[in-house]
């Protein structure tokens, strides 16, 4: 269980805590924290695609469901 005071999202199906400061909760910031390059991923927030250009101004909210995907080997 997460305390209600700690904002958290579901990141690829797993709980992920957000920074308390809203300014730190952008997608750009999250990708940076996770060590992911924006040009190597696509992001869906609550089932809606977030265009790459909007990462800096997209602030994540408590309870958001985020999918971060990339290409892997496949046939």
């Amino acid at each position: 269980m997460y305390l209600p005071t700690v904002p958290a999202i579901l990141l690829n199906g797993e709980p992920h805590e957000l920074a308390p400061d809203a300014a730190e909760r952008t997608i750009t910031r999250l990708l940076d924290t996770l060590g992911l390059k924006p040009q190597q991923v696509a992001v869906e927030r609550n089932r809606e695609i977030v265009p790459r250009a909007s990462y800096p101004e997209t602030t994540l909210e408590d309870g958001d469901q985020l999918e971060i995907v990339t290409f892997v080997g496949g046939g």
Partner: peptide, 8 residues
Amino acid sequence: TVALRRVD
């Protein structure tokens, strides 16, 4: 071809 998956 490539597949699309959640980032690891």
